[in-house]
Design a binder for these strands. Sequence first.
RNA 1: GCCGAUGUAGCUCAGUGGUAGAGCAGCUGAUUCGUAAUCAGCAGGUCGUGGGUUCAAGUCCCACUAUCGGCUCCA
Length: 637
Amino acid sequence: MSTIIITLKDNTTKEIPSHSTAMTLAESISRRLAKEAIAAKVNGKVVDLMSELPPRATVEILTAEDGADALEVLRHTAAHVMAEAVMELFPGTKFGIGPAIKDGFYYDFAVKEPFKPEDLPLIESKMRELAAKKTPLVRHVASRAEALAFFAERDEEFKVELINDLPEDVQISYYESGSFVDLCAGPHLVDTAPIKHFKLLSLAGAYWRGDEKRPMLQRIYGTIFFKQADLDAHMHRLEEAKKRDHRKLGKELDLFSVQDEGPGFPFYHPKGMTVRNILEDFWRKEHRKAGYQEIKTPLILNRSLWERSGHWQHYRENMYFTKIDEFDYAVKPMNCPGAMLVYRNAMHSYKELPIRLCELGLVHRHELSGALHGMARVRAFTQDDSHIFMMPEQIEAEVGRVIALVDKFYTVFGLKYRVELSTRPEKAMGDIAVWRVAEAALENVLKHREINYKLNPGDGAFYGPKIDFHIEDSIGRSWQCATIQLDFQMPEKFDLTYIGEDGQRHRPVVVHRVLYGAIERFMAMLIEHYAGAFPLWLAPVQVVVMPITDRARGFAEDVREQLEAADIRVELDGRSEKIGFKIREAQMQKVPYMLVLGDKEVESGEVSLRTREGGDQGSMPIADMLAKLNAQVKAFK
RNA sequence: GCCGAUGUAGCUCAGUGGUAGAGCAGCUGAUUCGUAAUCAGCAGGUCGUGGGUUCAAGUCCCACUAUCGGCUCCA
């Protein structure tokens, strides 16, 4: 009998009969492992337990303890079971795709009538019924023609399209579980028994393949875990995340509002404005240090400018227009054309370069109504923009400087980010060869700095490729914040020049970049990041002074004045309420420090300090308290 | 923009065709209290907007509007 040699996770080897499956291997190791096995990882690739092992392979048997890989298999199978349930409950349904995703799974269906929320519990109980049968999932391999015929006969037009789009060399497979057969690469569970601890979460319309020109399917999202406790923990996390939602906190902490009179046009309230001003102050200080010069360009500019910049041709559907004295004008959706005009307004020498013009520029963009989202996606926002004019040979160094600045900013706020490189979109301006050069330049910087990034083909700006920095919100949605965009087009369009060493005119290169991105979105991310409990230096109200009785009122006024003189943002709560009530309110408003002043403090001249996180800290001299606060502010804490 | 859901007092929410409610917030008064809610009283609403059905609409129907979830994490 011929055998194969398998290397296990612990680097030991095992000899087993040829054509053995991963399941056989698991059984040969231990009965318990075979029982708990979910899938196998063969040479780094997750496969079915029933799949045949190759002659030589490194194999790891995955169990419920093996995290993301095992969960993905569970979730993918759960999606199939859900599809089977839908097939039984809603005959005539056609099937789109049903993958496992980060926190669960979904399946897209074409149904005659969209699902109603009441349908979810029905589907859920049908799933439980089906899963309890412990139906095996059987993998079949088919030729392209067979697969096409099979799904065409069932009128599964989406599956047919998927098969047609599969690469030539790929093995086409489908999985059978009970009466349901789905085109699927797998891997899957051996049977449906582990489909126990799940919940269907939401319904949504979703375009077939995300394309608005294609039919809209009905998507059901769900999640599943191996253990009930994990599911409970996940549901609890979702609840907790809701409490961090910047829209909820923005209301509760009275930071901003969005009103019917201006969808997507946020109103800053005094406290939100305080936070924003601090962000801007910090930004200005850092930019002066980094060699930037601040400018401000007009909100509304003539059509001819936008035609020259290409926005009139490439960005029109996102722009707002107006007429002045019968001439066409546009409200700026970007700050770049204005900055180009500032540069062009004078002659420049190579000795001046790079010229770093920065601008807190208010731009307006017509975002889809369905895409608006609190402060995170709005139609009017302030970009902390900059346009850096330089010689081509300065690109790498300058982009490196910008990346360092992004990192400095995000480190101050303790934000984690993910980097993406976006390349030429379909609707692009300019020569492809020039694009290639620009794309390569950005890629080089990332590689030299050893930054991990994801390639995002076709997602660049219409004038150039970009490096984006993404931040996740409280429920894991990713938002682009900082971005660095390389631009060879605008200098051309605006005929920008500098005089080189040789006395001749040369064409500069422009880098567009934002650090916060949009101040609105960045604030949204900060609110969620801190769950509304801003660190002292950002807190709209840093200290509330609370006299316990009217006898301490005078002292409280005095303390308030001293704090104000020391540039601390302070409020005095002189209402005739009990101290517990005042503390509760300040606590709910997430004020970092409270000063409780009663007879003892009046007597000693000290203040009793209470912190948002740590409670009562006892009493201390005012000077000590101020020193403590100032040190904390300086350290951005 | 598209699919679905939702819109009642400043906020959170009850109200299933028959006289618009609660808690909190607000205002007034009392209370002067030691680390997360003192008590009492008062006031507050074209039920998102417009139209329709009905003897009668917050409630049913239509349109609009705003908000919420989602619209490739690719078999």
